[in-house]
Nucleic acid binder design. Structure first.
Length: 573
DNA sequence: GTAGGGTTAG
């Protein structure tokens, strides 16, 4: 049997049994000794995931070449059998075979998937030893490996020294930054286009992802136009990424439009849309979509339920949330994990049912984590329950003594209760442990540009006008009954100083700038890295009413849509 | 015989 006819036969194989028939045939007529034929057989076994058959054949082969080895390494990598993947690679080195640009990406990818930085570095040395550092395939996987191991600087160094980069390498680098620094991710995307690369669908998904992380609406619109103009069809992955992008940019209606346009939807697309309604406080819409999903025969997974419970919690749909919490295991065989419990603790906590939340935590059997405790601590803060707060704080600080957020939350609770000696105690504790409060930042988009503000910021070129606008707005608000809520200033300082600090919170400065620079009738969109404070929340509601402006705030937890004096969160966040 | 893509809790 000739090599060509063997390959033809293998191509027509539908299952492992067929491959075995071809295998028997080549053994009989002697073509087995032909290395090309043997390698092809090996490859087809691997393609059909018959790794044991592949291994048996590999052991019997009278000769092996780099292709033989790479097919085996790739087979193990594909199956996720990392120990055999590594072992085969070590065997290659031990036998003195030169690993090639086919074998190395498989092993590097295994390091990436396992976040095995140490092994990744060792393989990088092998790459250098064999002078393969300029190969596109090798280099792209190395960049990806370093990025997924969170060593973005090493990834970037490798990327920068590549003489010729291809679309895949660019995509890997852009995708790496999407998780780490979404702004830089978009800068790289622009650079890639300037260098003449035409992004394909996969590249667009990574950019869509970066827009979602950044919440950059003007970029989101551009990306959408690009996708339409270049006729990139909305497949299930690109469509889902776009739902998430629009939702995280504050436009849940556009997210729904994409969702409705998608021809193919799977459980991830449905979950993304349910989560989108959740961030925007649209609990009823999330529930309706969930029922529609079931009637379409899509089976919900753990993430669907996290999104659904989150939506119930943030919309104050307590009974509905509890109902789904029971149902998820009983009717959908999804066992609640700590994330589901956290949503339910939040759900009960917000509704003031703190005792039930505490009991639920006490009786649950899954492992507790710090976010579960901080959900309850957040509820203690809203409802001013000092006694429970202290109990919860003990568990929380024991689990996570190094997180400054926990100390801030706790001192907030003490401040609310007027216990400033306790606030000072916590502040000292933070200093002793060298923990710094995460500084608050607010971003606003004006004319396709992003501006950043911190508390008391005067770095903006129009700073003078911004402060004038802010003071005139505050005056109008005060006339309408606005009383600054200085409870949100942690420091034990004079009331007047507290007021001053509160007035120049980064959210207020960004909104004042928005009032100057964004035409009436357009939304003022701002993003904040922390949770919006209660006083700024009141401020936004009043500005939306008195100044007749629609304000959309994305904070670290959810979206707030302010219109005519009310917020979509129903003051429940 | 090789590399890049989507949803989740405070």
């Amino acid at each position: 049997m000739s090599t060509e006819s063997c390959i033809r036969l293998l191509n027509s194989c539908r299952n492992v049994f067929h491959i075995k028939q071809v295998h028997a045939n080549v053994l009989i007529n002697g073509t087995f000794n032909n290395l090309i034929v043997a390698n092809k057989l090996l490859y087809f076994y691997v393609q059909h995931k018959a790794i044991n058959d592949a291994h048996y054949l590999f052991d019997k082969m009278p000769m092996r070449d780099p292709t033989t080895w790479s097919v085996m390494v790739g087979g193990f990598a594909k199956l996720g059998d990392y120990s055999n993947c590594y072992a085969t690679f070590r065997e290659i080195i031990r036998c003195g075979v030169t690993p090639d640009n086919y074998t190395l990406p498989f092993v590097i990818r295994t390091c990436r998937d396992r976040k095995d930085f140490q092994m990744g570095q060792m393989i990088h040395n092998v790459v250098l030893k064999h002078g393969l550092q300029l190969d596109h395939f090798v280099c792209a996987t190395l960049v990806d490996m370093y990025a997924k191991c969170m060593v973005i600087e090493d990834a970037r160094k490798l990327f920068d020294i590549m003489l010729s980069k291809d679309l895949v390498t660019w995509t890997v680098m852009i995708g790496a930054y999407a998780d780490y620094d979404a702004y830089e991710s978009l800068v790289l995307f622009d650079r890639m286009r300037e260098e003449g690369f035409v992004p394909d669908k996969v590249a667009m998904v990574t950019v869509v992802n970066a827009c979602a992380k950044l919440g950059a609406m003007h970029r989101a619109r551009f990306v959408n136009e690009y996708i339409c103009m270049n006729g990139l069809s909305l497949d299930v992955i690109l469509g889902t990424a776009m739902i998430d992008m629009y939702a995280k940019c504050g436009c849940v209606d556009s997210a729904r439009e994409v969702f409705d346009r998608m021809k193919e939807k799977n459980v991830i697309s449905w979950s993304a849309m349910i989560a989108a309604y959740g961030y925007h406080g649209k609990g009823k819409e999330a529930l309706d979509l969930f029922h529609m999903m079931l009637s379409c025969g899509i089976w919900p997974n753990r993430i669907t339920f996290v999104s659904l419970l989150y939506a119930c919690s943030h919309a104050g749909l307590t009974d509905e949330g509890l109902h789904f919490f029971d149902l998820m295991w009983e009717e959908h065989a999804v066992r609640p994990d700590v994330k589901h419990y956290t949503c339910v603790v939040d759900l009960l906590g917000r509704a003031g049912r703190l005792d039930e939340a505490w009991k639920l935590i006490e009786t649950m059997t899954v492992e507790k984590d710090e976010r579960l405790w901080s959900a309850l601590l957040g509820a203690c803060r809203i409802h001013g329950n000092m006694e429970l707060a202290e109990k919860v704080a003990n568990s929380l600080l024991e689990l996570q003594p190094q997180n400054p957020g926990n100390y801030v939350l706790l001192s907030n609770i003490y401040a609310k209760a007027g216990k400033f000696e306790k606030v000072a105690e916590f502040r000292d504790m933070m200093t002793r442990k060298n923990l710094k409060k995460v500084p608050g930042w607010t971003w606003i988009e004006v004319d396709n540009k992003t501006y950043q503000f911190s508390v008391g910021d005067r770095s903006h070129p129009q700073s003078k006008e911004i402060y004038e606008m802010l003071m005139s707005v505050i005056k109008k608000l005060e006339m309408a009954g606005y009383v600054p809520d200085t409870e949100f200033v942690l420091q034990d300082v004079e009331e007047e100083v507290k007021k001053e600090m509160l007035y120049t919170h980064s959210e207020k400065l960004a909104i004042a700038f928005g009032l100057i620079a964004i035409p009436k009738g357009d939304h003022i969109r701002i993003s904040k890295n922390l949770r919006v404070c209660g006083d700024c929340h009141t401020f936004c509601k009043m500005v939306s009413d008195i100044m007749r402006r629609s304000i959309i705030v994305r904070d670290s937890n959810r979206f707030h849509h302010f219109n005519e004096g009310t917020c979509s969160c129903g003051d429940y966040w």
